[in-house]
């Protein structure tokens, strides 16, 4: 039982993610999460005025069910499969994020970014809402995210996916090394 409560290894994780991708193919769908943002807009009626959202969003409901499962999976992990230990990141990362005003991990996520108290600060809203805007706009512009491009697309040897993943890293490196030092402390 103890090995379940410990964090799982990268190879265990990679094997199960590949299994998830296969199961979605076996069930007649392609693994990819970010299209759900488009589906939500369409379900809210955005298709009346904007062509991009004028499609049969009900045909995409399977993706919503997948995400309901993802939420349940996170809940199960937190309440039944976790020993509550802090994430064991490298000493070098702990030192680097300390310079950004983020303390060493005490759990899964930093309170400095995700605790409710951040909602009382302008910076907290900029990070959460602004980060979300970048994620939603960027993944729809690129036509996929880590699941649709990095996992499904690369597995199918798609050149657009390789270009997109390079983009993910350009953006991630710019944010981490150039922008976070100004945004966070």
């Amino acid at each position: 039982m103890d090995f379940i409560l410990q964090p799982w290894s990268w190879y265990m994780s990679g094997i199960v993610i590949a299994l998830v991708m296969f199961l979605m193919l076996y069930f007649g769908k392609v693994f990819g999460v970010s299209s759900c943002f488009r589906t939500i807009c369409a379900a809210c009626g955005a298709g009346k005025s904007i062509k991009y959202f004028d499609f049969d969003w009900k045909s995409q409901l399977w993706n919503a069910w997948f995400l309901v499962g993802a939420i349940i999976g996170g809940f199960i992990s937190a309440h039944f499969l976790s020993n509550g230990n802090p994430v064991l990141i490298s000493e070098a990362t702990i030192a680097d994020i300390k310079n950004l005003g983020i303390a060493a991990p005490t759990g899964m996520q930093p309170d400095e970014l995700f605790d409710f108290h951040v909602l009382a600060t302008v910076k907290g809203w900029i990070i959460l809402l602004g980060g979300g805007l970048l994620i939603g706009f960027g993944t729809r512009y690129a036509n996929g995210c880590t699941s649709g491009h990095a996992i499904s697309g690369l597995s199918n040897l798609q050149l657009p996916s390789l270009i997109a993943v390079i983009g993910f890293f350009i953006g991630g490196l710019i944010m981490t090394h150039l922008l976070l030092p100004y945004l966070l402390p």
């Binding site: 937190a78 993944t139 993910f168």
Partner: peptide
């Protein structure tokens, strides 16, 4: 692919989550 990917990458590094993990975090 390159422009959209880069914009998403900015958001990924800022929030530490890509779309799938956003929902997992909610459940967590």
């Amino acid at each position: 692919a390159i422009a959209g990917g880069t914009i998403f990458g900015l958001g990924w590094a800022l929030t530490g989550a890509c779309p799938g993990p956003l929902f997992v975090n909610l459940g967590y």
